[in-house]
Simulated assay, not measured.
Amino acid sequence: MSSYSIKDLEHLSGIKAHTLRIWEQRYNLVQPKRTKTNIRYYDDTDLKLILNVALLNNNGFKISKIVKMSPADIRNKVISLTEGALAYEDQIHALTVSMIEIDEESFDRILSINQRSIGFDETMLRVIYPFLAKIGLLWQIGSISPAQEHFISNLIRQKLIVAIDQFVYQGSGKKFLLFLPEGELHEISLLFASYLIKREGHRVIYLGQSTPKDDLIEVYNYHQPEFLITVITTSPDTEDLQAYLDELGDIFCDSELIVSGYQILRTPVELPGNVRLLEKIEDIKGFVESLEAKENAVS
């Protein structure tokens, strides 16, 4: 079971730590546990309750009424609300609960509702990516277990693969080579890029996780793509990043290399002339659409 500080609860629920402490004292909403060194912490059950309370509170339920509801009543009301048109923040709360509970059925239901309402693209951009960003910090500091992170990542990965498979290359458009550096396993953003590119009719050569440099060069030489895309989240290390980018820029000098990811965004680097940085991998959508606009202008 994971443990959370009150700041973690604030980060995930949007309820200020000061308000949470008032609710603890006035309504006995949750009671923090204490470590052997007397440090306060909260567990998964506490986090689920706070997220559900936040969702109900955001939708007009007063805290004085919520604390009188049974756990079953709270859960049923939350399920009923998530089947309607909720604010994105509330959908993110519901997804977080499904992650904590390792509840695939709940996760699928929430995503399906959003896809029907706003489409797959907007579900990824407005719900999934903010959700991943929200839990990313907790993953970094170890407040989320590997099982929870793997569970949610694999479900999102499955949804992306299904979405990608609906598009069949028709023989036109640009050629993109997508890969992750050796040691890099965070694949969701690269899969989303593949989805966006294929949807616009371009060809994708997808190498995926932890691609050895020699294999990357071999595939590049064979296909000669106009563009390469990679996402650098944890690998290579910050001290090796500049040398890695310089090497890629030199090896693939006849193509444009598009890079994004947490590691490169937090590390000061000088980009080679043929390397473009995207602040967010979601910006690949605008980049691909700009290619289409250029093609139309030329024709």
Rank of each mutant, 00 (worst) to 15 (best):
M1G: 07
S2K: 03
S5H: 03
L9N: 07
E10D: 05
G14Y: 07
G14H: 05
R21A: 11
I22M: 13
L29E: 04
Q31S: 14
Q31C: 10
P32V: 08
R34G: 01
R40S: 05
D43T: 11
D44V: 10
D46L: 12
L47G: 01
K48S: 13
K48C: 15
K48T: 09
L49D: 02
L51Y: 06
L55W: 03
L56T: 05
S64W: 00
I74E: 02
E83T: 11
G84W: 02
Q91P: 00
I92K: 07
R116H: 06
R116M: 10
T123H: 08
Y129I: 15
F131K: 06
F131C: 07
L132E: 08
A133C: 13
W139D: 11
E149F: 05
E149R: 06
L160M: 13
I161Q: 09
F167E: 01
F176Q: 04
I197C: 12
I197W: 06
R199M: 14
E200P: 00
R203M: 14
G208Y: 06
T211C: 15
Q224S: 14
L228K: 01
V231M: 08
I232V: 15
T233Q: 10
L245M: 15
D246Y: 02
E256W: 01
P268H: 04
P272R: 11
L278F: 07
I281L: 10
K285C: 03
V288R: 00
S290Q: 04
K294I: 09
K294W: 00
N296Y: 03
